[in-house]
Design a protein around this nucleic acid. Structure first.
Lengths: 339, 339
DNA sequence: TTGTAGGCGTTATCAG
DNA sequence: CTGATAACGCCTACAA
């Protein structure tokens, strides 16, 4: 790779002249300009980004930091593409960092591998946040955490989401409802506790308003555990007429009901709080409160870019919940019913 | 951020002493060593990665380059996590580059934003490959392209995959089979043509071997178009007893059959060539030839890392196809049966 | 065992 | 209008 010096030598000028010929930041005589440009062509020169970044103390790249393997591929991809697009539009690069220790994340920032990071799947006591908080490094989280003072965050209104889900079922006439909730959160183990609280508040509000009887069943929020949870639920509480499923559990729930010969929504309604992509293509299509993943990512990226740009932002954005009626909910069967 | 000089000054030694104290590359008196380490602690110093990378002319990061938005979220995520993990294990960072022009990709390499790239979703005449070929920059493709001489590639044996799919149906007794094929590829428009050829070869081989009658229906390989294609297919050729679906079309196919009241596999078998994650959780579970996405990504990353490390690799890896029987295929119904 | 000096490639500042 | 110089932070001969 030729350097700016090579070009300068080739054109018989100084490095700074080459530089300014390429960046028009100061006036150059047309002839010299041509000569330089010709040399640039001849040697196929282009400036070294590393050297530039070293000089500027910036890497022009952002990091997306996810713990372990992401909970949901589809969700992660949607966030990823949206983040990549936003970063790219602002001439930034996006790096992916999975499975990093908090110190590794810190070193990413300190070593200027990235100018700022977006943290996803945050928990109540999130070591990544604790390490970053107080440092001068820009970061934004998508999610919640225990102490959010001074942090820049983007999140979804889970309280309203679950309120809407239960409210919808209640209005259809359901009273006995199964509820698949995030495993572990229940005991406040420090995992995802904030969302758990929000979820609880939404649920309780609808419960009181409509006098609902709910049966809670914890599950890891993946398809397989959703399946198991649904089987436990229907065994424990065969009288329920509807199920509220978090995350991707609804795919497993639908499968469990199908294998038991229960028809959805005739024999049992199912409603989810999940990503639209998954919800729209199950059989039957799932009525759900869709997570606005794309919007969350874009918002988070934009906030981060502003922080990286030196702006002093401490916004906390909460995106609203909207229920989308599809085909998996109906009034409970009072009397047998054919379709 | 403190520099090595700051530490040196604080400890009353020279920068090189600090350096060697931290990297044990030469002997240091215990006392000086302690003093330096104390200063490092005190100032909270850590070496700047940009400066290091500038010196070494390496960024220790790889790029994953995908055109437009990826065809399949789930597939992309699986490749992404596997690639990130492999890169990370080799102390490399992974950058994501969507929607980049061939020149942008080249500049990524030239500017040493990344040390090498993995190209996915390659086409017959892939401008990205044409631009990179002949440059000294390391790159690996996952997929095929027109002229593969000298390239390092990883791909899946699509010929065998489709052969196995048709062979499986033929052995079950099916003779009239619907085949949802990649749209556009048929006409050799330059898109994905290589896989199309392989697909055709596999299909033709099974067809001749078993005397199959197939009805081809082109579709973009997503859920929605799979749905439409299945509707067209069953309208044109109601006598088919099985459908072979590429990519994620099977989800749409299942939905189409469901909405028509055709039971799978009783009234119509469905077999896919797709990712295991999707295949395993449809209703019914899909019999399919699963794409070994994880393995492809790991192999590609490892090859790329070797190239980046200076090794001279021009391997072309073809991963084998394996059929997994689940629940969506069965012998065709010989006698009429209520529908 | 430790310090000095030079270079990686770019760019800003200061002379000319 | 153009050229020389220094500095970004690190690493490594080479010298002491």
């Amino acid at each position: 790779m030729p350097t700016i010096k090579d070009v300068a030598a080739h054109a018989g000028v100084s490095p700074s002249t080459v530089h300014y010929a390429l960046n028009g930041k100061r006036s150059i005589s047309p002839e010299v300009r041509q000569r330089v440009l010709a040399s640039v062509q001849a040697l196929d020169y282009s400036a070294s980004a590393v050297a530039q970044r070293m000089r500027e103390h910036r890497s022009y790249s952002l990091g997306l930091v996810a713990p372990e393997l992401p909970a949901s591929d589809a969700a992660m991809m949607e966030m990823l593409t949206a983040t990549a697009a936003t970063a790219s539009a602002a001439d930034h690069t996006l790096g992916i960092f999975l499975n990093q220790t908090p110190d590794q994340v810190l070193n990413l920032l300190r070593g200027q591998y990235v100018d700022g990071v977006i943290l996803i799947e945050t928990t109540h006591h999130d070591p990544r946040i604790e390490v970053l908080r107080g440092t001068p490094h820009p970061f934004v989280l998508i999610g919640q955490t225990g102490d959010m003072t001074g942090l820049t965050t983007v999140d979804f209104d889970f309280e309203e989401a679950f309120y809407l889900a239960f409210d919808h079922l209640a209005r259809l006439g359901h009273r006995d409802i199964g509820f698949i909730v995030p495993h572990g959160a229940e005991e406040g183990s420090g995992e995802r506790k904030e969302n758990w609280y929000a979820t609880q508040r939404g649920f309780r509000r609808a419960q009181q308003e409509h006098g609902l009887r709910a049966v809670l069943e914890p599950a890891v929020l993946d398809i397989e555990d959703g399946h198991r949870a649904a089987l436990r639920l229907t065994a424990r509480a065969p009288h329920i007429t509807a199920i509220v499923a978090s995350g991707h559990t609804h795919v497993g729930v639908l499968r469990a009901l199908y294998s038991q010969g229960r028809r959805v929504p005739d024999d049992c309604s199912v409603i989810g709080v999940t990503t639209a992509q998954i919800a729209g293509w199950t059989i039957p299509r799932l009525t759900s409160v869709d997570l606005p993943l794309r919007q969350m990512s874009v918002t988070a990226s934009e906030l981060l870019l502003r922080k990286v740009g030196g702006e002093d932002v401490t916004e906390q954005v909460l995106l609203p919940a909207v229920l989308v009626e599809r085909e998996s909910t109906a009034p409970p069967a009072r009397r047998p019913h054919e379709d």
